[in-house]
């Protein structure tokens, strides 16, 4: 497992305490799990994503990620409607490990309140959380 200083945390992203990242793309946001989260999970073998069109509230489960011997739930960083999912994860769940911020993205959301993004953690804030609680 990575030491905290080895974890990649791009500065342009926002983060949730539940280890999701959020990237603003106009009026939509792209969501995935952090490098720290994928490293903790180990080899991902299966990803279950929500249906496009579903509305999911902040803090509710939007996906489950399975490794060989664990199941983890991913929680919505902000409330909104799912408008796109990364179907490539179905065939190739390893993308989540290889490229958590790139090809391993999970969903695109139309947030109910686009301003909610600013309420999420910065990279520094998230790292401080990891150091405090890890």
């Amino acid at each position: 497992m990575k030491r905290l200083e080895e974890v990649t945390l791009p500065g342009e992203l926002r983060y949730s305490v539940d280890h999701e990242w959020v990237q603003t793309e106009g009026d939509r946001v792209r969501v995935g799990i952090t490098d720290y989260a994928q490293d903790q999970l180990g080899d991902v073998v299966y990803v279950e994503l929500p249906s496009v069109g579903a509305h999911i509230a902040q803090g509710a489960v939007f996906a489950t990620v399975e490794s060989v011997k664990s199941v983890s739930e991913c929680f919505m960083p902000l409330s909104g409607e799912i408008i796109e999912i990364n179907a490539a994860l179905g065939d190739d769940p390893v993308l989540l490990n290889q490229s958590p911020y790139g090809d391993g993205w999970m969903i695109v959301v139309k947030p109910d309140d686009p301003a909610a993004v600013s309420g999420l953690l910065t990279a520094e804030g998230y790292l401080a959380r990891l150091k405090g609680g890890a």
Partner: peptide, 8 residues
């Protein structure tokens, strides 16, 4: 095995 009781 992630379907099963000892994990889930």
């Amino acid at each position: 095995a992630t379907r099963e009781q000892h994990i889930r």
